[in-house]
Amino acid sequence: MGERSDSRLAAMRTDELNIDVVLVQRLVAGQFPRWAGLGVEAVDSGGTSNAMYRLGADLVVRLPRRAGAEGDVAKEHRWLPWLAPRLPVAVPVPLGQGLPAGNYPFRWSVYRWLDGATPDVGHLVAPGLLAEDLAGFIDALHRVDPAGGPDSYRSEHLAVRDTVTREAIEELRGVVDADAARAVWETALRAPVWAGPPVWIHADLQPGNVLVDRGRLGAVIDFGCLGLGDPAVDLIVAWYVLPGDVREAFRAAVAADDASWARGRGWALSIALVELRYYRDTNPVMAGHARRVIREVLDGRER
Rank of each mutant, 00 (worst) to 15 (best):
D204V: 01
V210P: 02
R216P: 10
L235A: 01
C225H: 11
F250M: 00
V193R: 15
G196T: 07
W194A: 00
L217F: 11
D258R: 14
C225N: 14
V233G: 01
A255Q: 13
N209W: 08
P198W: 09
V220W: 00
A219C: 04
I201K: 03
V220G: 08
V220F: 13
V241W: 05
D245W: 14
C225G: 04
L211H: 12
V199L: 12
P231N: 02
W200E: 08
V199G: 02
P197T: 01
V233S: 04
R190G: 14
V237G: 03
V212F: 08
W194Q: 10
L226F: 11
P198I: 07
W239H: 10
G215H: 06
P243V: 09
L211G: 11
L211D: 07
D245K: 07
P192C: 08
D245I: 05
L189N: 02
A253V: 03
E248H: 10
D230I: 01
V212G: 13
W200D: 12
P231L: 00
G227N: 10
A238N: 12
R214S: 15
D204A: 03
A232H: 00
L205R: 04
L242Y: 09
G244N: 13
D222E: 06
W200R: 07
P231W: 03
W200P: 04
P192D: 13
L205C: 13
F250G: 02
D245N: 15
D258V: 14
I221S: 13
R247P: 01
W200Q: 08
G224C: 07
A232W: 12
P197L: 07
N209L: 05
P197E: 15
R190F: 09
L205T: 01
D234N: 04
R247S: 09
I201R: 00
V254Q: 07
P192K: 05
A249N: 14
D234V: 00
P243N: 13
L217C: 07
D234S: 01
A203V: 11
V220E: 10
V210F: 02
R247E: 12
G229H: 12
L205K: 05
F250H: 09
V212R: 06
G218I: 02
A232C: 03
P207F: 07
Q206W: 03
W194M: 01
